[in-house]
Structures are given as structure tokens and as C-alpha cells.
Nucleic acid binder design. Structure first.
Lengths: 136, 136
DNA sequence: TGATAAATTGTAATCACTACAAACAACGCG
DNA sequence: CGCGTTGTTTGTAGTGATTACAATTTATCA
């Protein structure tokens, strides 16, 4: 937990219980939840936690690169506790979002000359392994 | 324009003036507008056109693969008249969105075994060539 | 410990988007 | 060509995720 506190401090963010709870939960759960899902998950252990605080927190964490935001659905924003570049596969049948590793250099090679990448997202829609074989 | 009519018919969509107007405009303008921007652009030539119709139309076109939807900003959905796979670069300074070609095979190679891609988006944030050299 | 600046909270507002029902128009069939 | 069916358009009213705001609380540092 000291590590998480340090992360916050190095970004100039004050360390609060709420931020630690949100940040810790995102790091420990390799899913891609909405703000509301995070809130519901934390509420039992953190009574009084406000949904607004969850929104404020994920916004602050994302602005400082500690977590990532995913615009997969148009209607709702999702968050990802793993800030390093990686791809996301969205199965159109089961809806599951699967992470996969990417090599940022591969992506960089696709860019026009002079463009400087800072963050890249590779997002693929299709059928996941389970749904493709009809096992779901 | 006959080509566009055919595209609509082959998707089982009825050919209406409104759909042709939206589709034609998206094909001719290589930008990434929101529904509202499309509406404002078409209104002078198409008085009475409803914003709801623009929303309905882009939804129908996207569902049939004639155009693409871009979830670049969390707050608003953008559309792209070019349905083939290609990447998008979003400059964090000037906000411009630049297209760049990608090889779908490169992306496919990154996927876990058994996953079947159907549509892929490569989205990169950073500095565009103009902003990187300080010329903006 | 006390000052100060930032974070939290709850409520109210915003804004992109959608549901809905009535009016209308495209397409197929005679 | 005219008619009926069915899909489309339109305006309005809603929805739901997200944010603005002001009051209260709390982290941080001297």
C-alpha cells in the first residue's frame, strides 16, 4: 500500500482513504469497470463513499497516468488499472473484454513522419476464442 | 450518387434523401464529425432535416458497416465515412485527428490464439507533426 | 497545533443521445 | 399508375452518465 501512496504523492495528489481504495481496487481487479461498478464494489467496505468522489478520483488518476480510460462503449466510460500500453479485445457475442500485449514500437512504425506518440490504444472487435468455437 | 443508393439498398435500407445526404457528406468530407456537426453542415441545403434523423442515420449506416463510429472523446461520438481499417492520431495540443494507414495483419498478429478479429481500431494520442515542431 | 489549500459529499444541473407516437414516404404488387 | 404495407422522419419528452457547485471536512506543512 505504501507503493500506492507514493504514486499519489509523486503526482502531487493528496493521499486520502478514498483515493487509495479506488486505486488499490483497480490495481487488484484486472477488469474494466465503469465508475458506478467501482463505487458499488467499494461501498460495503467504505460506507459513505460518494459516487462523485469515484468520478473525481478516476479522473485525477487518469490525468496523471496512473490508470487508463477506455472509450469502448460510447455510452459509458471504463477504467483500467494497468497503465502500460496494451490492447483490448471486445467480443461481440459475450461482451467480454480481453487484454493482450502489444509492442508500442509496432504501432509507432505505422505513424506518419514527425508524429510523436505518447499513448496508444489498440482496440479490436470480433469473436473471442470461446465464442469462436461455439463453446459459449 | 448511384453508388451510394446501391450501398443502402444492399444493406436492406430504404433510400431516402436524408440518408443520401448524410452518407454523401461523410464520404466527401474526410473529417470525424459529431452528429451535431453533420446536422449543422447539412441544414442549409436540407431545411427541415432533423437532428434525430442524423442520429438514426449514422446509427443505421454504422450497423451495416458503411461508416465507422469513433469513441475518441468519452463525451461525444464521432463518425468516419471511411469504413476500411485505419488508424487515428489525436493531437493533444491542437486536437486534430489525423488518419494513418494500418495493416490489419499486423494487428491480427498481436491477438491471442483463437481470437477472430472483425474490426480493429488503432488510436494514438500524442503530438502531431505540426505541434511537435512548435509551428502551431 | 493552526492555517491553508485541496478533497469529499450531496444536490442540482448539463448534455449527448434515445424512446416514443404521429405524420409521412419508399417500395412492391396488382 | 394507384394502393397498402412497412420503414422512415420528425419533434418532443425523456434518460442516464457525467460534471458544477457550495458547504463541510481533511491532508499537509510550518
Amino acid at each position: 500500500m505504501k507503493r500506492l501512496e507514493n504514486d499519489l504523492r509523486q503526482c502531487g495528489l493528496r493521499v486520502t482513504e478514498q483515493r487509495l481504495a479506488v486505486y488499490d481496487w483497480l490495481r487488484k481487479h484486472p477488469v474494466h469497470p465503469t465508475a458506478d461498478v467501482i463505487w458499488q464494489a467499494l461501498l460495503p467496505e467504505n460506507p459513505g463513499l460518494s459516487l462523485t468522489t469515484v468520478y473525481n478520483t478516476v479522473k485525477a488518476l487518469a490525468e496523471h497516468g496512473l490508470i487508463r480510460t477506455l472509450n469502448i462503449d460510447a455510452s459509458e466510460q471504463r477504467f483500467d488499472g494497468e497503465p502500460a500500453d496494451h490492447g483490448h479485445f471486445h467480443c461481440r457475442l459475450c461482451g467480454e473484454i480481453t487484454d493482450f500485449p502489444i509492442d508500442p514500437e509496432d504501432v509507432q512504425g505505422m505513424l506518419p513522419k514527425g508524429f510523436i506518440p505518447e499513448q496508444c490504444d489498440v482496440f479490436v472487435r470480433g469473436l473471442c476464442a470461446g465464442c469462436a468455437t461455439g463453446k459459449n
